[in-house]
Design a protein around this nucleic acid. Structure first.
Lengths: 227, 227, 227, 227
DNA sequence: CATGAATGAGTTTTCATTCAT
DNA sequence: TATGAATGAAAACTCATTCAT
């Protein structure tokens, strides 16, 4: 079983070295409020006034807590990437099987994503905005590490015979990474919402097996649910 | 073979009934320029001045051709949706097999998407902006038809035994539709770019069969390439 | 005497129910400045920059206090109409004689007009602009009440024999209402200016008796000054 | 009877000396179209594009006929004032009785006004705009002549005992001139409209006699209708 | 004469940010 | 910490006017 090959460790709290944030209660609360708005409409499309309104203060007052709107964004994005990268590194470290590693990456990423919805929306909506600024250079760095990890696991799986040998590793990475990010951006109406585990299982099944009915119900076949 | 079951017809030029656009040479050129910018940065993030700069005129001069920035967006979006819906309808009409219909949908959508890159970026970046305005009500209508079509084909495929019967049709639709849209939003550097047919084949393979090596090399198995 | 039949009450401060205006010192001052400009040149012909200049700030800074130029206009117009209507209602309520009621209407209107010069200029200059917008629907409503009041008093006076029975009530109303509004729009150079009571007495005399020398110096004749 | 004392002459076509207008058919038609729009919304509030639209041409094409929007206004205003002044001069010349002169002034002005609705609206809406420009200096000149004429007739009537001797001539002039202009600015819905003679009679009656029922039906009393 | 395309100065409005109180 | 008032740069849009064709 996949899980057996993977020594799952709980990710330690990522050391947020990036910003020297005087993490007060109030401040953290404001970041959360801002994040909710960013998650809905994106970073640029959200005004500081809207953030202040949500907090019940005036827009100017936000500047006692942050020196710019961007520094709020910075805080959210770096926290997200710290989390995600920690998950990727742990998956690679703890799993010696590429299929298991990818499953672990998907699961840990999904967890990170659900806790950092704002960050993802920001990356999707405002990538061109952030990636152009030196302050956010770490975004590109992190993306490169993520790509490297995926490609390595996919190539390894091809060599080991687990994955189809006609896979284009980089193309598949791009598709899978983006696929993985899709559900997070869904603004779900509570009633119709799918549960996270529903989604992640659906995703894993899709990724590994596609939508087609298996040709032969081969007994050795293991789908993502058999855990 | 999939293609056999599908009476592929070339899509007739979609009658642009939606907007009575007095299409002049210059005007069409300006829409194209604007579209390129929208595709890169989104609709809101693109200023009319940038569009005008690209055209080598002053921003105010754009209003000789359009009565608002939004009407440029309108033109792009409605043209896109006309094309996409035409493709969906043709696929359903011409294919009596859900697998073939979906393959046809994917192929026609991909073609439409590659010709309307701006539209997709706009929908992804600025959905909340557009969908809130009465003028763009047709966006919601079109999306509903798209969803209906996917769900119907998936359900039919489940009943006919072609697709796994544990598929959640709506969840799968959301995933597949978004997956389909992914590659279009990639701003590719020419050198590294994948060809469209590479991408669409990769996608179809992924959708139908996943990334895993087939358990048994069943002879009746048909992958997306065997056409 | 006219005044005898009229139980004059001081108009209570009109409850400004219409707009929930967060009235600050500064804000009120800005409205006054804007009003002065509107009174001189009309609403549309006055730019926000001129208002800002008058206040010694930048045009954008006005939007800290108002969300649009129109909302300044709204504030001025609704305050005016509240006042005017209060005067009309009080006149009808307190006077049981149409001649007295009309005199009272003229006097209260004149007072209101002199305090709201901007509003009148705006109605005269920019009626087509305002009356077309849903936001200013109350303008039409108020005008209808004003017309109804005049016509009722004139008709009543005709029945009671106080007014000529060949008066066309609606025509006379239109003339008298507009006549009443005339002097307010005069931008008077201080030196040549007439006093308000001079004007209102001149007006009343004109309205009731015309300019012709009375045929017979009838002893029972009462002119508007004999109060 | 008033009319007896007044030797009415038809006003000769005013020599339009002001602008060297190559009065072509087309041009005159355009001025009329523009005038209709100015009459409805004022001069500034009407755009050249609206004028061009009304004429079925593009806005730029107007400049083949006029060198500026203002020159259209000039044409309308000067034609109006030529007519009005001609009427005033004729009235003074032909009538030796101030009451008759004023009646004649009212009647000729009314005729002129009904033929030049645009001009009046322009003067009322855009007086500050025009009166500030050297090009329109003749407006002030004309107004002065109009004032002089009224005041002279009123003073003369006071001396001759026809008018109340407590009349303030200048105040009364301002009131009467503006009163006279009122009905012209009414944009009447055809159904409810009053006929011009209805209005002018109502006006004259009002001016000379007011709205009050005559104290004694003195036989020598003459109202405005007894012609 | 008219078109089609453009100019350029001006309009209202937005918004991140600053700062004295 | 928060307020209230402001800045300044940029946004979308308007409009009289020009001019080559």
């Amino acid at each position: 079983m996949a899980a057996i090959m993977c020594l799952v460790t709980t990710a330690k709290k990522a050391s947020r070295a990036s910003t020297a944030a005087p993490a007060s209660e109030r401040r953290a609360h404001l970041v959360r409020l801002a994040g909710d708005l960013f998650a809905e409409k994106g970073f640029r499309a959200t005004t500081v006034r809207e953030i202040a309104d949500a907090a019940g203060i005036l827009s100017g007052s936000l500047y006692h807590h942050f020196d710019s709107k961007e520094s709020i964004g910075d805080e959210i994005l770096s926290a997200f990437l710290d989390d995600v990268l920690a998950g990727y590194r742990a998956a690679v470290r703890d799993c010696d099987d590429p299929r298991a590693a990818i499953e672990q990456i998907v699961r840990s990423s999904t967890a990170a994503l659900s806790q950092h919805r704002a960050a993802l929306t920001m990356l999707q909506h405002d990538w061109t905005y952030f990636s152009g600024q030196p302050r956010f250079a770490y975004l590109r760095t992190a993306m490169k590490e993520i790509e490297r990890t995926w490609v390595q696991q996919l190539e390894q799986g091809k060599r080991s015979g687990q994955f189809r040998d006609d896979l284009d590793a980089r193309l598949t990475y791009r598709l899978l990474r983006d696929i993985l990010w899709i559900p997070t951006s869904w603004r779900q109406r509570p009633a119709k919402a799918w549960r996270t585990d529903q989604i992640v299982d659906g995703l894993l099944r899709l990724i590994f097996d596609g939508i087609t009915t298996p040709a032969t119900p081969a007994p050795q076949r293991r789908n993502a649910r058999s855990r």
